[in-house]
Design a protein around this nucleic acid. Structure first.
Ligand SMILES: [Mn+2]
Ligand SMILES: [Mn+2]
Ligand SMILES: [Zn+2]
Ligand SMILES: [Zn+2]
Lengths: 147, 147
DNA sequence: AAAGTAAATGAAAATACTTTTCATTTGGAT
DNA sequence: ATCCAAATGAAAAGTATTTTCATTTACTTT
């Protein structure tokens, strides 16, 4: 269900963005990683293979990918600075406050609520965010330990 | 339905926080304002009456109030830097991308979904965020204007 | 009422994150 | 092969937030 590097590149081409080695490298990093990661983390990973890619390029590339909805931007309560991942289709999140892991889920349809709210308030609703926060199994155990 | 300065002060007392003039001032500002505002905006407003309150104190006070769930922290997509307001009880948001206005609503119960997710993933779910984004009535009109 | 003390404050410095600027390079069209 | 707008990266600038630490103060204990 996740987009491949190929597909992402195709979308960029279609929007007349140039396919540079740097952009390819960022896309590779993102598609390779399964978790939500920060711009800095993406830079570090990409930097390994591509030693002189600048952090600025990471920011610029992420901005494009996010605008085209090719990646998912996450603003989680605590570690807010916008997070991203390689799962583009609409989904919701389950975030562990302990270890930071993020589980995506697609369950739950909010279109009815959306329609009702729209009718009541006159808003034209474009999108929504539904994120749950808590503690994953192993983080719960850790909390109960004395050491 | 919103907490009063009195009530907030009482909760702080109950948690053994000292009631300083600075904290009172911040609480006054927040309870007086009906919209979500940034730490800097809170500082500016509070500063008028209390000319030498430091921005640090605003941050520190907001952190306490948020932890005690006395204010609502908002991380909206675009203007992320954590926003706050004086409506403490659990609610959801309708955010206008045009003018930044935020409407709170309490409708929609997510406890069933929460229970299901918890059972499936083993997560102990503590809270959730449900925010809708779009354009309010007047911002839609503005978009359609030619000037 | 006075004293004592841990908590709170604010100025300044440190840190962190993100955007802007601009000279140089380069992808892809012609 | 040539051309040029788009892209890049180093550096600087702009913001946001946290830490440090000397000083003050709210509140408890006399
Ligand atoms: Mn996601
Ligand atoms: Mn709110
Ligand atoms: Zn965890
Ligand atoms: Zn609006």
């Amino acid at each position: 269900m996740r987009l491949t590097e190929r597909e992402i590149v195709a979308v960029l081409r279609h929007h007349h963005y140039k396919i540079t080695p740097q952009r390819r490298a960022v896309i590779q990093t993102i598609t390779a990683v399964t978790s939500h990661v920060t711009p800095t983390a993406i830079h570090e990973r990409t930097h390994r293979e591509h030693p002189n890619i600048g952090l600025v390029t990471i920011y610029r590339t992420l901005e494009i990918l996010a605008r085209l909805k090719l990646i998912c931007e996450l603003h989680a309560g605590d570690n807010c600075p916008s997070y991203t991942i390689g799962t583009p289709e609409h989904h919701h999140h389950l975030i562990c406050s302990g270890c930071g892991q993020v589980i995506d889920f697609t369950r739950h349809d909010l279109t009815k609520l959306e329609r009702d709210l729209s009718a009541e308030t006159g808003f034209e609703i474009k999108s929504h965010v539904l994120d749950f926060t808590g503690f994953c199994g192993s983080c719960q155990k850790q909390k109960h330990r004395t050491t």
